[in-house]
Design a protein around this nucleic acid. Sequence first.
DNA 1: CTTTTTGCAAACCCTTTGCAAGACA
DNA 2: TGTCTTGCAAAGGGTTTGCAAAAAG
Lengths: 136, 136
Amino acid sequence: MPARNTVQRQIIIDALRTLANHPTADEVYEAVHAEHPGVGRATVYRTLARLSDEGVVGRVRINNGADRFDHQTFAHYHVRCVCCGRVDDVMAPVLQGIDEAAAAVSEYRIVGYTLQFDGVCPACQAAEKNDEALTA
Amino acid sequence: MPARNTVQRQIIIDALRTLANHPTADEVYEAVHAEHPGVGRATVYRTLARLSDEGVVGRVRINNGADRFDHQTFAHYHVRCVCCGRVDDVMAPVLQGIDEAAAAVSEYRIVGYTLQFDGVCPACQAAEKNDEALTA
DNA sequence: CTTTTTGCAAACCCTTTGCAAGACA
DNA sequence: TGTCTTGCAAAGGGTTTGCAAAAAG
């Protein structure tokens, strides 16, 4: 059953294209709802889930945090700032043969993997330096 | 401030050693609470968090699911069954130089990464075969 | 006209928190 | 004793769900 081309679906796709930097479902909802107060939260969550199932958008799963959505769909990784929660792309070469390596030591049929980096973003690194200067 | 050696702490450590296969905090709570009804859920969550901060136990972060705890603390990966949610160890060699590779293409100071495999466990593979046989 | 989507609100899961009472060192 | 830890219950963040009304094909 192909997805119906509803007004809401298009609004949500457009919002995702407009919003930068991996918005959460709730951020998409806020943006959509601000412009179109009739659109409900459940619709945004349901539609984002469908879109990512269909491969129209990407879903970035974040440890201990809300999932984020990405209008880019090519394979790439993400890094999350442990200080401020910001998420950015990591354009590292995609790991080759890692599924096979896991399959070789497991009884599972491997269907995929998630790799997430944790780090400190430039802004928070700068803030750290300020703190040190003040403390010293 | 070193952790105090409370009765509850020891009970929780023992429960983790006894429980197999990466229990969630709530599963630890159920087990502990069954034996020691006086121990509350908050204590289990707080204590597990401390123990993993101290490196006494491992914490396995699961995408879209409860965190799991592991009395093994050496570095290894995990695979989660997309059908039943079961989590098992993946004793694949730990990736070398991956933090550096990410750091090379990012402005972030990389502090770590999380790698989680998704797959289908042996039991669910068998169940799939049964379904096919019935459908055919 | 049939089936899918929507919107709302309530429910859900997992986890954290405020606070007074209790336990440790 | 002074401080850390506990237990309870309530709140919190993020997401899903039941259902009747509305919209798509």
